[in-house]
Each structure stands twice: as structure tokens, then as C-alpha cells.
Design a binder for these strands. Structure first.
Lengths: 244, 244
DNA sequence: GTCAAGCATTTGTCCTGACAAACATGCAAT
DNA sequence: ATTGCATGTTTGTCAGGACAAATGCTTGAC
């Protein structure tokens, strides 16, 4: 199984990452049965011609992705394919993109205006400071799915409406050189008002999923505050957690 | 700030973790202003009398908890207290426990029965195999908040009703020596049926949050499948994400 | 005055070596 | 048959050293 693999020592991608990627592919493709024990670190290091710490770093990566489980005195085992697949579960949006059915994005508004009190509070800026407000309608299969409302401090940048129609907001932020650090989000539910129902093609009183998210950059500044509603009949949040 | 700290080399808790914990406390308590730069790795290693890899391991831990940000050629900076606090946001249940207001748990049923098709499918066991079904009502401040329905393969263990009234399910599982590996969950919403509304003290048609969760152990076996409903008026999910 | 080159600083990667701790296994004693 | 012990295997921890790459600042050239 471990035939000659090619490590490129002159490549800028770190050795341990090359090793990790190779193992990841090998696990995913080779279809190692659940519980297969990998060779121990020393043997692997010799086989690949690297040092043990490099192997260990690669292993830590695989553990953090949930692909393998390590136990002192026992070894490294491959977790069941079923579990691995469940960890790769993605959101409906990702699923649609993957299957070629690009979700549609319609920009309902993209303006710069003085921040109202509530928004200024969430963004941590003075009331009345200029913020850009972006309202988008996401849809798929000819049906609306979500109404996304985002606020950014306007000092940062103005995002073109055209760009928003083709790329996700986070993708655009990253492309502008903004380093995201973390985010907090709150997921709740409520019944739709008449206006919300109309926007999402639902009936008044239908169940909606709500999500508020605040994203921070490396310097602790708030990059973005979002307030979103989703048609509960057509959308749900999917996520996976690793223990510890 | 970095006065003589006490590292216990004979302690079973690893050196790097002692270092990490010390820094965590020192960051949290010392109230370092946002962006404070820590001494570099070499200096820290000398100050604490450990090697550089040990310091690095401690730093990796702090990065993974979102407390500091590292940048090659620049150094290690403490993230803003506001962001740190937001990363510690917990669920309503945790908040209640912390404030001494223990959430109440009423066990509505705790029986072993043959698995119906849907449950057997989710647990990955044959239809009709014995499963234990646990239904709990969670409440706080004299109001019901959630109805939690869990299924475990009955081979594993029978959990006493009494234990369920005082401890969380996951706590009990861990205490029984079951190693959780990962879980996947789906969060959605729908309107309450008459029965659900009655159970949660809501009106028919009120918005409910729903959550289905499947938990796996290290061997890829499914430990638990849960199907939960929450009063959206009194509960919401709160979580924080670190950008990779 | 402005831009580029060079330099110091800092983290990232990689190596070698050594010992400790947890686990599984087989063997011996009860 | 079962318990306990010794032993080998495997991952976990720690040390010390060396070089590479990214960043920010200073210096020098134009």
C-alpha cells in the first residue's frame, strides 16, 4: 500500500503537509477498511525518508480532521468511512455548488448610509458612521431560500453589486486582504411576518430559521454583522463536531 | 508581568500544557490591552527554563483556542478581550448552570423497546433490535424549554432514570467509559403541532427549533441518535467559529 | 522626496536523540 | 480458570540545534 510516494523537498508546501495530504488521499481513495492500523511513526518515517516529528505533525493534522484516531500503546487507526463522510457534510449552498446547480444571488440593495443605533452597536462604531448595507436574496431551483442582510463598516471597502452576484461575501472579503479570525453566531427561529413571507415565498406564520453572525478580524475589529432569515421548509443548518 | 512562575516537572500534566494554562490565565486576568505583543519564543523559553518546542506547543494550543494570533516576522499578539469573550459564549443551559440556576430535567420516559425502522436506520442496527428510548423535558425558570428524545443501542448500557435527572446524557456516557469521537447535527425549524405546543407551553403554530444529532465513538459505531425540539421563544443556539 | 535594497527580528519547518507513559500480550503463580 | 507481573510496542513529551521565509525598519541611491 505504501509504494514510492513523491515528496518534493524543494516545494514551498511543507513536508509534513505533503505527507498528510498523501495519507488523506490514500485513506479516502484506497478505501482502507474501518479500523485499519497504520504503520507506526518510526516505520513511516523511514519509509518516507523524513524524521519522526514530521510524521507526527502530519498525524496531528489527520487527527484534527477526524480521519484517524491515535492511542498510546495501540497505534493509529483509520476511522470508519461512514463517520468520515458525515464529517464532510456541508451546507445546502455548498451541496448545490458542488452539483453544478449554482445558487442564485439577487442583490436587493447595496447602499452606504449612516448607521442606526442597533447596527452601530453591533459593529462597535459610533452611531451615524457610514456603513454599507447589503441585502441579498438567495435562491435555488427557482425558489427563494434566504434573505441575507449584512452590514460592514464603510471605511473598509465598498463591494460592487456585480461582484456580490457571482461570489460569496466572505470570499470577497478574503480577496480584499481581510484576515478573518473568528465569528460568533446565534441560530434561532420565529414565525414569518407578512413581508418576510412574501419575500421568501412562504405563508404568513410559516416557520423561519434566523441567524445573526458577527465576524472579527485578527485585530479584534468587527468585520461584518449579518442578520439572516431562511425558509425553514427549504433550508436547515448542518454541521459536524469533533470531540474535544 | 512574567514573574517567577511555577512549573512542576514531576507533575503528570505536560510541561507545555502547564505553560499554556499559565499564559491563558495571565492573558485573561492581566487584562492585556488588545494587540499586546508577547515576548518571542526564544526569550520565553529562557524565562521559563524550557525548550523552544515546548513553548511552541503551548502557543499552538493558545492559537487553537483563539486567544492569540501569530505572524511570522511580526510576533505573537493577544486578541482583543471582546473577541475572547465572544469565543467563550455558551449555550443557555451552560449559562444557567453557571449562574447556579440549574436547569430542571424531567424524565418523561426511559424504556427499552424494539427499534422502529426509522430509528434502526439512524443507529445503524437491525430493525427490531432493542434500543433504549429516553425522553426528557428540559426547563428553566419554571418554564419548559425543550423536549429531548434520545435513542441508544441497548447493548451498550441502561441508564438509570435517576442519573438522568441530575446529569447530562453525554456526561453519563463519558463516565461509562464511552469515548466520543464526533457528531453531526442538523438544525432546522418548524411550527408546533398541538401536542408539541402543549408539551412546551406554547400555542399551536408557534415556531420551534429542531435539532437532530448523531454521535459516533472512536470505532465508528453510532453511540446515540437524538431528535430534539426547542421553544424558539425561549431558546436559541449560540456558537463560535475559528477561521481554520 | 521616493523608491528599492539590505538587515534584523520572529515565527515556521525540519532534524536527531532520548526517555516516559499507556496499552496489549503472553507467561507464571495461585 | 483467573489473577498478577513482566515485557514489548506505540504514541506522548522534551531537549537542542539549524536553516528558511515573511515582515518591518533602516539605509542608501536616484
Amino acid at each position: 500500500m505504501a509504494q514510492a510516494i513523491t515528496l518534493d523537498r524543494s516545494s514551498p508546501v511543507p513536508l509534513y503537509f505533503q505527507v498528510a495530504q498523501h495519507m488523506e488521499r490514500s485513506i479516502e481513495a484506497g478505501g482502507l477498511p474501518r479500523g485499519t492500523r497504520l504503520p507506526n511513526e518510526i516505520v513511516l518515517a523511514q519509509q518516507l525518508g523524513v524524521s519522526r516529528p514530521t510524521i507526527r505533525k502530519a498525524m496531528e493534522y489527520l487527527v484534527s480532521k477526524g480521519l484517524v484516531v491515535r492511542q498510546r500503546g495501540v497505534g493509529t487507526r483509520v476511522v470508519s468511512p461512514k463517520v468520515r463522510r458525515s464529517l464532510q457534510l456541508t451546507s445546502l449552498f455548498d451541496d448545490l455548488e458542488e452539483s453544478g446547480q449554482r445558487p442564485t444571488t439577487e442583490v436587493l440593495s447595496n447602499v452606504i448610509a449612516p448607521a442606526p443605533a442597533e447596527v452601530a452597536d453591533m459593529l462597535g462604531i459610533p452611531v451615524g458612521a457610514p456603513v454599507s448595507e447589503i441585502v441579498r436574496l438567495r435562491g435555488a431551483l427557482d425558489q427563494p431560500i434566504a434573505r441575507l442582510t449584512n452590514y460592514l463598516s464603510a471605511e473598509r471597502l465598498m463591494i460592487s453589486t456585480q461582484a456580490l452576484e457571482t461570489s460569496g461575501l466572505y470570499q470577497l472579503l478574503r480577496r480584499s486582504g481581510i484576515q478573518l479570525h473568528s465569528a460568533t453566531q446565534v441560530i434561532g427561529a420565529r414565525t414569518a411576518t407578512v413581508a418576510e413571507a412574501r419575500a421568501l415565498g412562504e405563508r404568513k406564520g410559516a416557520a423561519l430559521l434566523t441567524m445573526q453572525r458577527t465576524a472579527f478580524d485578527d485585530h479584534g475589529k468587527i468585520v461584518e454583522y449579518g442578520n439572516h432569515i431562511y425558509s425553514a421548509a427549504r433550508y436547515s443548518f448542518q454541521m459536524s463536531l469533533l470531540s474535544t
